[in-house]
Write a protein that binds this DNA or RNA. Structure first.
Lengths: 171, 171
DNA sequence: TAGTGTATGTTATATCATAACGTGTCAAGG
DNA sequence: CCTTGACACGTTATGATATAACATACACTA
């Protein structure tokens, strides 16, 4: 996970995790885990759904539903919004992707299966999105909710700011 | 129709904060503090902006931009979307209202001026929204971000679940 | 009063999302 | 085998949310 972010050449690409890593490895890894997860849960990772997940993984950043749709259409899948939205909804429901509401966009989950309710760090300059470990955040949030008698089922934790790279650039 | 939401008789209303309180009092109080805040910041709480804030306070729940627009139009203000969006943006920028992205809606801030970056607890049954104190949440989130070298400027913390009243109803 | 900055109003359009219905696929049970 | 039912996918149509761009009005001040 901490090996260089290597896309077959030594070239680096904008990295949503703000930390170099082997992208091709994590992509394949995630796909494999997605297959297993789907089987475990008794749901079907159909061609469209799988392809959407691949698209998100390849993009390695948050994509709008229509961005995804365009790519699907170019490959012979349906070219109407519900095609993309349904696949994306499936992925989100099954923990394989996340919806970033601030961006009206979706991105692949980098840690499927691990019970995590991540926080998202969104760079306002480059739009990169990182999944930050948020277990302590969840604990604090649950406590705050409990104080009001509220029971949390799902949450969206999104923060806007500057990623390390863009902090340097904006000095 | 836009009659003051008068709870001066001790009557309770569906309360987004999940805790009974004197609504007329907090509404007036918030408006007064908004005036002061605007003056302090050197920004203008114009009629439209003030009226939008009142509308949000009276509704006492999250309203969509078009809901707000409808009420504005009915009172002789402009009836085109930018009128509502601009006023709402102003209120959000100046800490007088919050945007609830999960609901594509806005609600008045109940604690303007106090430096708070609240978490929102959204009931999936009745759509009530509570502002939960989130200082510890912020601390945890800042720590998580710091670990990735990310600097948080703003954040949206939204949780979906069941409010106390709806927990009872769904048993 | 003319000039400047800001706010508002208006037109038009962009962007995001879903309802509703028809068709295809496939596996389980008759 | 062949029906049936569940599910996924494709398509049409529309709904809901949001902003760009420009015109007008207002408030201040020099």
């Amino acid at each position: 996970m901490t090996s260089p972010h290597n896309h077959s050449q030594g070239k680096t690409c904008p990295d949503p995790a703000f930390a170099p890593h082997d992208h091709s490895h994590c992509t394949g890894d995630v796909l494999a885990r997605a297959e297993v997860l789907a089987a475990d849960r008794g749901v079907r990772l159909t061609p469209v759904r799988r392809r959407v997940l691949e698209i998100l993984l390849e993009a390695h950043r948050a994509l709008g539903a229509y961005d995804v749709l365009q790519r699907l259409a170019a490959e012979g899948f349906g070219n109407q919004p519900p095609v993309a939205y349904r696949a994306l909804e499936f992925l989100v429901e099954n923990g394989l992707a996340h919806r970033i509401r601030r961006l009206n966009a979706f991105m692949a989950c980098m840690h499927p299966g691990e019970d995590h309710s991540p926080a998202f760090l969104i760079c306002r300059v480059c739009d990169a999105v990182a999944e930050a470990p948020a277990a302590p955040v969840r604990v604090a949030l649950d406590a705050a909710a409990a104080g009001l008698g509220f029971v949390i089922e799902r949450s969206n934790l999104e923060a806007l700011g500057l990623c390390p790279a863009c902090q340097a650039g904006s000095a």
